[in-house]
Computed example of a mutant assay.
Amino acid sequence: MNLNKFKKTIGKTNPEKGLRDLAGARKAEYHHNDQGAIRVKGKYISHDYDRFGRVFGITAYLLAWLYVPCTVLSFFLPPGSIWNPFSIFLTGMFAVHGFALVADGLRNSNAPWAMKGIKIYWMGVILLIVLSMIISMLPKG
């Protein structure tokens, strides 16, 4: 066994060997000239806003502001109505989250209006639950 050859192989250092795995390393053909592009897990995400994504995000935001008051107002409808609070809650949840998912998919995981809509919807629902619990604890009379 020739140990000298083995030692020469171990002693070699290739400084270029692992550079492609570094966070900022990129090939010239994959480099975006846009200063706003951010590299996340090997993909460049630009701050380019897609119009369809923006429309879906703003729609989710507006639906959140629409369904929270509708859920509150549905408590005052007659008991036999088809629009009970739970059905409006489910419809609003699926509508807001559905539009937010579409907006997020179209805008490269950058949908601020859709995220605001989800936050507003859930804050309104939680506030409604807390208020209904407080009202139910008040003495009747």
Rank of each mutant, 00 (worst) to 15 (best):
G92Y: 01
G105Q: 11
P79Q: 04
N84R: 01
N110K: 10
F94G: 05
C70E: 12
A100V: 00
F99V: 02
L77E: 07
A100L: 04
C70H: 04
P69Y: 07
P78R: 03
A100W: 01
S109M: 03
W65S: 13
W65C: 13
F94H: 02
G80L: 03
T71R: 07
F89H: 04
L73C: 08
S109G: 04
D104W: 09
N108I: 05
A100K: 00
S81Y: 05
A111F: 06
F89G: 06
P85K: 04
S81L: 00
G80T: 12
F89P: 02
T91M: 13
N108W: 08
S81E: 07
N84A: 10
W83K: 03
F89I: 10
V102A: 11
P85V: 11
L90D: 02
L66F: 15
P79M: 02
L66P: 00
D104P: 00
S87N: 14
F75A: 06
H97Y: 13
P85R: 02
W83D: 06
P78W: 02
V68E: 04
G105K: 12
H97M: 08
G80P: 01
W65E: 05
F99C: 15
S87K: 09
G80N: 12
S87H: 13
T91I: 06
C70V: 13
V72R: 01
M93G: 05
L90Y: 08
L77M: 12
F94V: 15
T71H: 09
I82P: 02
G105A: 08
L101R: 08
A103L: 07
H97I: 05
A111P: 13
G105P: 07
F75L: 11
F94N: 01
T71E: 13
W83S: 11
P69E: 07
T91E: 09
I88L: 15
N84Y: 11
A100R: 03
S87D: 06
G92N: 01
G92A: 02
T91W: 02
L101I: 12
N110M: 10
L90I: 15
W65M: 14
I82L: 14
D104I: 07
P69R: 04
R107L: 04
W83I: 10
